Amino acid sequence: MELCAPHGGFASEYSPVLRVPLYSVEHITAEHIVKHQKRQQKRIDSFRPDDRLTHDQRAELEDFRRSGFDRGHMAPDADSWDEESEYDTFVLSNMVPQAPDNNRELHAHIEGAVRHMAKREGSIYVFTGPVFQGDTSYLHRRVAVPSGIFKLIYDPKRHAAAAYLENNVNGPQGQTYKVISSVELTQLTGIDFLPGIKNLGMLDLPVPRESNHFVRHSTKPNHFFGF
């Protein structure tokens, strides 16, 4: 199912069977990043089920309670540029069960690195979603828990793309990642994210660090490059 954020911040390809997005895609511009920086407001959490979906199709807040997993944004709230676009990101159809160590540390550093890239390049497209390998577990037998998380960046100016691939686990393995091509990501997920775009170069992605954040977060700075 295709779901579009009401205020245009992102769109999601959603699975009512897995009850998670297969990906959320954003067009991030330098203008958006500057607007977010100028807001200087604390994040306002407004987690909620997607009322465009039936109970059988969607995740509920109860599915995540005491599960040990975060409600992990695919299109991040920190990519929003006003209150309306931020509110849109907190719908559960934009979230997957994410290991806290990964979500709050490495994944947050990757998000920050991508925002810096968008500000530098002026305009990029970003796809973020789950990877399912091996036996899939479910929260309350309803919401699929991914084995990994990807973030694919396409830079039209450079005609190049590449993806971060992370482990969705706690501990040191949740702080590891590797960079793969868009072709490799398609082979892994079965999704052609950039149909019709041929002969893509391999995009040079920045190393994610805590210092990539525009606003300092209380997270541990250490992670390891690898997978």
Results as ranks from 00 to 15, higher is better:
residue 94 N to V: 11
residue 56 D to R: 15
residue 140 H to C: 05
residue 110 I to S: 03
residue 6 P to Y: 04
residue 59 A to L: 07
residue 160 A to I: 00
residue 19 R to H: 07
residue 155 D to C: 13
residue 109 H to I: 00
residue 162 A to H: 05
residue 123 S to R: 01
residue 16 P to S: 13
residue 40 Q to P: 00
residue 100 P to L: 11
residue 44 I to T: 02
residue 105 E to N: 13
residue 153 I to M: 14
residue 62 E to Q: 12
residue 107 H to N: 15
residue 5 A to Q: 14
residue 145 V to T: 14
residue 207 V to M: 08
residue 16 P to T: 10
residue 11 A to M: 14
residue 112 G to K: 02
residue 167 N to Q: 08
residue 172 P to Q: 06
residue 203 L to H: 05
residue 206 P to K: 02
residue 119 K to E: 12
residue 45 D to S: 06
residue 102 N to V: 04
residue 183 V to P: 03
residue 101 D to I: 00
residue 76 P to I: 04
residue 153 I to F: 14
residue 3 L to C: 10
residue 167 N to H: 11
residue 162 A to E: 08
residue 29 T to V: 04
residue 33 I to K: 01
residue 49 P to R: 03
residue 122 G to T: 01
residue 178 K to W: 05
residue 96 V to M: 11
residue 15 S to V: 06
residue 72 G to Y: 10
residue 30 A to Y: 04
residue 226 G to H: 04
residue 152 L to W: 15
residue 205 L to N: 03
residue 122 G to M: 05
residue 203 L to V: 06
residue 210 E to R: 11
residue 173 Q to P: 13
residue 181 S to K: 01
residue 95 M to C: 15
residue 49 P to I: 00
residue 35 K to H: 04
residue 99 A to W: 07
residue 121 E to Y: 12
residue 92 L to Q: 07
residue 215 V to H: 04
residue 111 E to Y: 08
residue 68 G to F: 12
residue 44 I to P: 00
residue 120 R to Y: 10
residue 155 D to W: 10
residue 71 R to T: 03
residue 89 T to Y: 11
residue 11 A to K: 12
residue 120 R to M: 12
residue 82 D to N: 14
residue 99 A to V: 09
residue 199 N to V: 03
residue 68 G to Q: 07
residue 97 P to N: 10
residue 192 D to K: 09
residue 120 R to A: 14
residue 140 H to A: 06
residue 22 L to R: 02
residue 65 R to N: 10
residue 86 E to G: 13
residue 120 R to D: 12
